[in-house]
Simulated scan of single mutants.
Amino acid sequence: MTTLAPVHRTTPAARFDDLAAAEWIKTRSLRSTPWVIGLTVLFVIGSAAAAALADKEAGSGADFLAYDAYPPAGYWTLILVAATMGALTVVSEYGSGLIRTTTAAVPARGSVVLAKAAVTAALWTVVGTVAALGSFLVSQAVLDGRHAGVPITHPGVFRALAASALLAPVCAVVGLGLGVLLRHAAGTVVTGVFVLLMLPTMFSESNRWSADLKHALVSSAWHRLVQSWEPDPDSLAYTATVPGCWLVYALWPLVTIALAVLVVRRRDV
């Protein structure tokens, strides 16, 4: 009598697109997500309209991009919301215990983090693009009434538009990475607010070391990229370079996600 050897069935590893699809379902299943995104976009665009309406000196040398199309108040709010929502995509799972189910179903924890980052970046790129384009169009519609508007082909407009559109996904992915590292909602939000919004105000551009630290932060890089004027070569301030600002945009999300993947592979949950 022949004895058949037992057949060992192995579950195929989850593909990355499956993980991304699962993360997208988690994101859009939250009822608060569309409301938060919608209100944030409306506030950002509304702040641009309000800034353009309040600018009595439009067309007389004022930097229309930094102060009218992309006012700091609106984009600081976008930074805060994007970073917070990015963090909540992961800390909410730690808080509810769902992360244990996720890691049990998909032992490749690094792939889960990367899938979350991909979905978060894609979603907030769309949000940032809508907010940035809406801000520009609304502010220029107001300024056109004073014959102070500029076309989208005006020098510096596309750079400011791209920088403002990418600000949201950069901050959202940074928030997600901090969420993986800290695993606590309040701690992650406070850390994100401090690093992305408060820390740049602690440094000036009058000293080289202070300017270098300031220029290495995301909000400072964004502010330089939306400026339509070139720095005064006779100024005593150390001004960030445009390529350096784009490098800051790239390094912050890459470094935080790389650290998150490294850490999540080494700890239990």
Rank of each mutant, 00 (worst) to 15 (best):
M1P: 15
T2V: 14
T3N: 09
V7Y: 06
H8P: 07
T10E: 15
T10G: 08
D18C: 02
A20L: 13
A20T: 12
E23C: 09
I25E: 13
K26L: 11
R31N: 11
R31L: 12
G38D: 04
T40A: 08
V44M: 06
I45C: 02
I45V: 15
A51C: 04
A51Y: 00
A52K: 00
A52I: 00
A52Y: 00
K56C: 01
E57M: 04
G61V: 01
G61F: 00
D68A: 10
A69L: 03
Y70C: 00
P71L: 01
A73K: 12
A73R: 14
A73D: 14
G74H: 04
Y75M: 11
A83S: 12
V91L: 03
Y94K: 01
Y94W: 07
G95A: 09
S96K: 00
T103N: 11
A104I: 12
A104S: 12
A105H: 07
A105F: 06
A105K: 06
V106K: 04
P107E: 02
V113D: 07
K116W: 08
A118H: 02
V119K: 01
V119I: 10
A121M: 04
V127A: 06
V127L: 05
V130Y: 09
G134T: 06
F136K: 03
L137F: 07
V138G: 01
V138C: 01
S139P: 10
S139W: 00
S139C: 02
A141G: 13
V142T: 04
R146Q: 13
R146D: 14
H147A: 14
G149M: 04
G149Q: 07
I152R: 05
I152D: 05
T153Y: 10
G156P: 13
V157H: 01
A160W: 03
L161Y: 02
A162N: 08
S164Y: 02
L167W: 03
P169W: 04
P169E: 05
G175K: 01
G175I: 04
L178F: 15
L178Y: 10
G179Y: 05
V180N: 10
L181Y: 10
L182Q: 07
L182T: 10
H184G: 12
A185P: 04
A185C: 08
A185K: 08
A186Q: 08
G187I: 09
G187M: 03
F194L: 14
T201Y: 13
T201C: 06
M202Y: 13
S204F: 11
S204W: 13
W209E: 15
D212T: 13
L213R: 06
L213F: 08
A216N: 07
A216T: 04
S220G: 07
L225W: 08
Q227L: 13
Q227E: 14
Q227N: 13
E230R: 11
P231M: 07
S235M: 01
S235K: 05
Y238K: 02
A240V: 05
C245W: 07
V248N: 04
L254S: 12
A258K: 03
L259N: 04
A260S: 10
A260E: 06
V261F: 07
V261E: 06
V264W: 09
R267P: 03
D268F: 08
D268M: 05
V269A: 08
V269Y: 06
